[in-house]
């Protein structure tokens, strides 16, 4: 598996693991120890679910908090769009931008549930964790993991490390009492 294909190629083939398919190193996919779905499909699926849930959340907020509703609609549309895009294929640049945006959204979620946004219906306190929010975040985390995999080797490692640093950073902020 030396020839790591680009993310675009990785998602072009819709049936990569058919029994009998021959992998690039010549071994049968049947011998692969773990059955896998391509990272591209995981990313596309998970980000689409996150997008749809954001649109649902927008409906919930539309009556009392327009700013939130608009934000959720924008995020929902971008995410469902990205889901469709990922299914067609993508470039490392787009994947990188998507990763940055998703990590940003997860950090924003942590912020809203620990420190609290200073606007909106919960202006004076952090929101409590809720089922919808948790589901969205799990989908986004799955998308992040899958999208890292889509990147060419060098970038994949850089992106993974960057996400790791952000994660550790959040914990450091928590340990020092800034978060929470």
């Amino acid at each position: 598996m030396t020839d790591r294909t680009t993310a675009a190629r990785a998602v072009v083939d819709p049936h990569p693991a058919h029994p009998g398919d021959v992998d690039e190193d010549g071994s049968s996919a049947l011998r692969s120890p773990v059955p896998t779905v391509t990272a591209g499909l995981v990313a596309a699926g998970a980000v689409t679910v996150a997008g749809v849930l954001h649109l649902l959340a927008a409906l919930e907020h539309v009556q009392h908090q327009m700013t939130f509703a608009v934000f959720f609609i924008v995020v929902g549309l971008v995410q469902t769009g990205a889901g469709a895009g990922l299914r067609r294929g993508s470039t490392p640049l787009r994947v990188g931008l998507g990763l940055a945006a998703l990590v940003g959204l997860v950090v924003l979620y942590v912020y809203s549930r620990t420190i609290g946004l200073q606007i909106g219906p919960h202006a004076d306190r952090p929101e409590d964790p809720d089922f919808l929010g948790i589901t969205v975040v799990v989908c986004e985390l799955a998308t992040i993991a899958a999208m890292i995999t889509l990147l060419p080797d060098r970038l994949r490692s850089v992106a993974g490390n960057a996400v790791l640093v952000v994660g550790i950073g959040v914990w450091v902020l928590w340990a020092t009492g800034v978060v929470g």
Partner: peptide, 13 residues
């Protein structure tokens, strides 16, 4: 690598 962020997002709230 993602799990540090994941654990923070799920546990801290």
């Amino acid at each position: 690598k993602v799990s540090a962020l994941g654990a923070a997002a799920l546990a801290l709230p």
